[in-house]
Each structure stands twice: as structure tokens, then as C-alpha cells.
Design a protein around this nucleic acid. Structure first.
Lengths: 238, 238
DNA sequence: CGATACGTTGACGGAAATCAACCCCGGTGG
DNA sequence: CCACCGGGGTTGATTTCCGTCAACGTATCG
């Protein structure tokens, strides 16, 4: 299997063999992390970024009320804190959801990569802008869609992204995310998430057991969600 | 007065005299637009980006239900569709709120600028990532804060951003945004926006008449909002 | 085998949406 | 000059969706 970052970048940009080579030559430090571990915290000034080799992560903010808002889920191949490359101080926290294998790359190497390989610079720009787009889709849901549609949309999105990097097939994917976490991502209570998942199940649109999601009726589910994958800017959908 | 883009970028990054010069030498086409006009629409593939010289803009998405979610407000100095430089297809719409004077710059010139002036490349990266950060702050509010706090937060944010580029002083700024638009940005109905503005007024925290916002008690207002300006990554706050 | 985390279900209450008037003000045209 | 109009703002009444509280079920693990 090729490097997860290569696989991921190929879903959003074309890479030359030299580009792939440059990525493979990046000095990386592998690291295994337990679940629910904060990797970079609000206020930190990281000097390196990480690539998810395996596992799920999320970025989030905590409020004084104790409530949490998850701003993104990250899957293998993602580089979740590319942001620190240009912003310096983290304004939110990045943590693991499941046990994760992470590859850390020092910022200096990334800067050099971007300088020497315009094509990869472009790809990383795209990746960052797509994260931004995804956030826009989330905000649209949280601000203006009813609970059922939000939950449906999240399932469509995660499933599509997993499929793009080869981690889902035939609408079946592993989804190691608790209902509490789904709630923190959709702006709902976990009770409400549970009820809406029940509804989707009873409509025969999905099954979700033991962290395995199967979408039985993609057509209907994506209609409810108003899911239009264009915002993911995948080459396969272009 | 210096160029609005220079003034803006100086709030988030250091520019050398040569950087400023390069910006001033950019070929730009000035254009006046009426209010409520879409400049770039979902699905478009723009070949140029715009800089706001004067006026307010917003980016938004419409849902089938007819509801609208505003994802960002943009003020003079902002380059709202820098995103199209790397993504190609727009996945949302960018439009004016007020009459606007816009300066259009062809993508080719921007690409050259980024290539020739690493410092400006960095500044534009920062600007983009900050937009992303702002979206994260919004999502946190919409997902997890009660109405009053959301409205208060939006006022704090816009006021801070306007002040950074010299368009607000002593907590007084022009705010040419209707309550309906504030609702579309905060995920509230305009009725609810109205009631919460009333509440902020009756608490003696703000006045808002004829599109002029005065924040009378910044301390209290920002507490209610849980507003921590770090996410705007302004040099002045570093 | 108890402990713990996650999922499920019912009852209740509340924050905000919706519906429906009405007001105020600036612009326009007869 | 004033009547009319339309957009924005304000306010009250009613409804509804979803949050909260609380209890119970179920699976995994030391």
C-alpha cells in the first residue's frame, strides 16, 4: 500500500512520480497514540504537523458551559494541523478519537517541500481550502437544517471521504464515532442523535452496528441530507 | 490612504516596502456594484479574484427549503474569493450586502505574486487560514451557544475586525447589515435577532441605530459572547 | 462478576421558530 | 404636498423541535 498522504492527495490533485517521491523522502517520525488524547492544544505553537496513518481524529473547541463543538473529523491520509504551518498559535484543539498511528513532519521540511514542488504546494493548498469548504457545509447544516438532515449529511460526507481513500466500499464503512461525538459535531444532544439514527434505520436507509455503517439507500439518504459532494472537490467527482 | 489590501494584510503579517510595492503594481480593474448582487455564484469557475475597496460582502449558501446560511461577512481590505485560486469551482455564492467598490485581479497575477514574494504568499495563506478559523468560531457559536451569546459574539467580531483596518474607533462602527442577514449568519430567525438585540440594548451594552453600532460595555459584551480574539490572529493582539 | 462506557427510551420543559400584526421612515409619483 | 408603498424593525401569541433529566439495557473488560 502506498503512503496514506499520497493516496489522499491523489483524490484531490494530480501528482507526478517526482511528487510522490518527494513525499516518500520526507523525514517522518511515526508515533502511536491512544484514543481521546489531545495531540495539539489551543495555545500551542507546534513546530511540526502530523499525517494520520491510521485512526480517526477530530478538532474541537470547548466552551465555558462545558459543551464541546467538534469542527472536523479527520481520517487516514489527512494532515489535520497544516494550519499551524502558517498561523503559529493553535486556536483550537486537535485530538484522537480512536487509537491512532501518526506520522510527524517538521515544519521546515514542509516549507521546503512547498517551495521546491509547486505542484505539491498547490495540492496542500487545495487540501486546506477543502477543509474550509467542509466547515462551510457543516455550518449550513447546523444553522439551517433540521436534526435528521444534519445527521444524514454527516453520514454521507464521512462515507464519501472514506470511500475516496479506499476505506469504504459498496457504501459500507467503519465508523468508530460515538453518538455523543456525532452530537458534538452536529450541534445536537446525543439523545437526539440516537433518535434520528433510529429514524434513518426505520426508514431502511442505513444500518449502524458495532461501528459499522452501511448505507442501504444512498439516493434517499443524500436527498434528505441535501448532500452535494461538489464541496469536497474530489477529482473523481469532477 | 494606502491600498485597502495592504492595510488589511498588515493587520495579520509584516510586509516589507517591496511587498507593498508589489501589491500596488498589481493590475487591477475597479468596478462598482449595487447592493444584493451576486459576484461569484456556486458552480462558477472564476479567473480572477476581488479585493473589497469599499462596502460589505458576504458568502452564503441557499437550501432547498429557501433558508439561507451566511458563512462569512467580508469588509474592506478582504479578498473573499482567494479560494477560487486553488479550488477552481465555487461551492458557494459570494455577493454584496451594500453598494461595493471592488478591485479585480487576474489569477495569473496572483500566482506570480505568490511565487515571487514568499512573504506575501505567507500573508495570503494566513488570511485564508484565518477565514477558516473564523468559520470555526461561528460553528462553535451556532452549534453550542444560546442566541444571546451568538449575537453578542458576532458584534464583537465584526467590531474588532473593523477596528483592525481602521473602520471603527472607540467601539463605534458602521454596521450596514439587516437583522435578517444577522439571522442568516447566526442561524437564528430575524425575530430572535431582534429580541436579543433588544436585550443587549436594555442591558446597556450596545446601541444600534441607523446602521451605527456602539459598544458601550465591551467587557460585559465579550464575556457574554465568550469572545476571545485570538482566533482572528491579529498582530496587534499577539 | 462488578464496573464502565455506550446505546436506547420515555417524560417534561424551554428556547427559539413561526405566524401575524403593526410601526417607522425614506422614496416616489400623482 | 401628501398619499402610497416597500423595506426594515418591533412586538405578541402560538407551536414545535430539541434539550434535559432520568432510567434502563447491553456489551466489553479487568
Amino acid at each position: 500500500m502506498s503512503h496514506p498522504l499520497i493516496r489522499k492527495l491523489k483524490t484531490i490533485a494530480r501528482l507526478s512520480p517526482e511528487d510522490e517521491d518527494a513525499i516518500l523522502k520526507l523525514p517522518m517520525e511515526l508515533c502511536d497514540e491512544p484514543p481521546d488524547r489531545d495531540i495539539v492544544r489551543e495555545g500551542d505553537r507546534p513546530k511540526r504537523s502530523c499525517i494520520i496513518v491510521d485512526g480517526f481524529m477530530c478538532r474541537y473547541r470547548l466552551l465555558e458551559s462545558g459543551k464541546r463543538q467538534i469542527m472536523a473529523f479527520h481520517i487516514p491520509g489527512d494532515m489535520p494541523d497544516l494550519i499551524s504551518l502558517h498561523l503559529g498559535v493553535m486556536d483550537h484543539t486537535l485530538g484522537t478519537l480512536t487509537p491512532c498511528r501518526l506520522a510527524f513532519v517538521a515544519h521546515e521540511h514542509l516549507h521546503r517541500l512547498c517551495r521546491d514542488r509547486p505542484n505539491l504546494n498547490h495540492a496542500l493548498w487545495r487540501d486546506t481550502l477543502i477543509s474550509w469548504s467542509v466547515l462551510g457545509a457543516w455550518i449550513t447544516g447546523i444553522g439551517r437544517k433540521p436534526a435528521l438532515n444534519r445527521v444524514a449529511h454527516l453520514l454521507c460526507e464521512v462515507s464519501t471521504r472514506l470511500e475516496a481513500v479506499g476505506l469504504a466500499e459498496d457504501f459500507v464503512s467503519e465508523l468508530p464515532i460515538t453518538q455523543t461525538e456525532l452530537g458534538d459535531a452536529t450541534g445536537l444532544s446525543y439523545v437526539q442523535v440516537n433518535r434520528n439514527l433510529q429514524d434513518l434505520r426505520s426508514m431502511g436507509l442505513i444500518t449502524l452496528r458495532k461501528q459499522t455503517l452501511s448505507i442501504l439507500n444512498w439516493q434517499k439518504l443524500s436527498e434528505i441530507a441535501e448532500f452535494h459532494p461538489g464541496y469536497l472537490h474530489l477529482i473523481a467527482h469532477a
